[in-house]
Design a protein around this nucleic acid. Sequence first.
DNA 1: CGTCTATTTGAATGTACTCAAAAGCGGTGG
DNA 2: CCACCGCTTTTGAGTACATTCAAATAGACG
Lengths: 194, 194
Amino acid sequence: MKHHDLILKNIAKHITLEKEETTYFLSLLESKTVKSKAYILKESESCQYLNFVNSGTLRAYFLNKQGKEWTIMFALKDWWVTDMHCFVKEQPAMLNIVATEKTEILRISKINLDLLFTEVPKFERFFRILFQNAYIREQVRVIQNLSLTAAERYEKFLAKYPQTIQQVTQKQIASYLGITPEFLSIIRNRRAKA
Amino acid sequence: MKHHDLILKNIAKHITLEKEETTYFLSLLESKTVKSKAYILKESESCQYLNFVNSGTLRAYFLNKQGKEWTIMFALKDWWVTDMHCFVKEQPAMLNIVATEKTEILRISKINLDLLFTEVPKFERFFRILFQNAYIREQVRVIQNLSLTAAERYEKFLAKYPQTIQQVTQKQIASYLGITPEFLSIIRNRRAKA
DNA sequence: CGTCTATTTGAATGTACTCAAAAGCGGTGG
DNA sequence: CCACCGCTTTTGAGTACATTCAAATAGACG
């Protein structure tokens, strides 16, 4: 499988590119290999890139004032991820993004993305649909966080993410669910008995 | 102030329209007055419209299996609102949308919106930016729901929404914050003392 | 093998909920 | 215009869900 196949497939879900548009698009991308536990973004840094996960897994998290981690998302293969707020508004990052295993990304800088929108306006459509879906997903998560117990949220998590989610610790899952690792341990224990 | 001034200003925040594009866009809109407590969308109905609030306030909420309401958003003047999931995927609505006071909306059907994207591709850009911002806002809400206590979330709510938010009851605010009305009452009581 | 971190377990505590009842408030009809 | 009805808000007691802190155990990695 070639380097760019996955991202081109991802894009083909929503728009159809001409050959020269494809070439142009690919020319704007940078490829990068990220070691397990290496960061591609740290809080307070500038957030210049929108990242596509070609293989591996990234985890984006937020550190609150008490120094606790809250996981915003696990970005698996075929996902897009960045600190969107800071990428868009060109402000220092609030999120940290770290690889939970060896990960290959393709990334595009804000400058190049703006260029892309100008040169190939079709991409406005692509990202319109991408953000539309992202918005819907976050809204569903808000509803679930409001209306479900921790145990129910854990079930949803298991249903949503494949078991293949490598190297993700329970501590990290707990921080995604909004609970302590100790309490997740209790939930898992009860669950195993039932 | 003319009927369409607000929505045109809203759009002008992100894209610039030619005169005939403006005319065409306006021709796709329907205007509608909604009485206080009237619904513009009910669960299981088809969700055909994307709505712009010209004046007044709408409230979108979700009913869970136990029959409890969870408020997804208060859409004030100058906001866009619909059950996005069902609008996009053309599925029965999961949300209810109701006017908390007399409200004027401008709405566009899915068919007309698709037409608009074809005829005036600039609107892809407009909605790309709109959804991008919506996504960022929901993500912030997720972070806050995870990492803040109910009392802290209430403070954020007060800071975010103007006092002018009419006719909104504490019960509804509680359902937005993810707590019971009883507990919001306690929070307000403690707050008044401090 | 030793070290470091993750996970489990338990006791004590805090946050938020349920249920019930009283008080407040707004709208409607007589 | 007032009385009543229905809904919202408040208050309180008892409870459940989830956290904190501490200590023991298990796993991962160099």
